[in-house]
């Protein structure tokens, strides 16, 4: 049981970064939007995970943010991809396609295994 959970967590972790970059790539968003979408897709169990990831991606130069006034409460950080981030995401996308193909191929050849 815990082995399964662990593997699932590892799998989610792997695609988390790609998914976040993809969400941001569709247009300027602020963290709560990202969380909403991730939760919708059941990719994220807890919200806290997002913030360290965003900070790291920003520090790597893949993301940039701007402060925007909000109607309720203090100003919010809105994230968007930098040119490097866009290129990075495109490359991840093709890697993902290859990965999906590879996984499909291997799992269909060995139907006994999950």
């Amino acid at each position: 049981m815990s082995n399964l959970e662990n593997t699932q967590a590892q799998m989610r972790k792997g695609v988390l970064e790609f998914c976040i970059l993809s969400i941001i790539g569709k247009g300027e968003v602020y963290p709560s939007d990202i969380i909403a979408k991730m939760k919708e897709a059941k990719l994220m169990v807890v919200e806290g995970t997002l913030y360290p990831l965003l900070t790291r991606l920003k520090n790597q130069g893949l993301l940039a943010y701007t402060w925007k006034e909000s109607t309720s409460g203090p100003p919010r950080k809105y994230y968007k991809l930098t040119p490097i981030g866009e290129q990075f995401t495109t490359e991840l996308h093709s890697t993902w396609q290859e990965l999906v193909d590879a996984v499909n191929q291997t799992t269909s050849n060995n139907p006994n295994h999950e």
Binding site: V45, V46, E47, G48, T49, P52
Partner: peptide, 12 residues
């Protein structure tokens, strides 16, 4: 909602 400290850090 936010997750335990180890979960928050564990994402990375």
């Amino acid at each position: 909602t936010m997750g335990k400290p180890e979960q928050v850090a564990g994402a990375d």
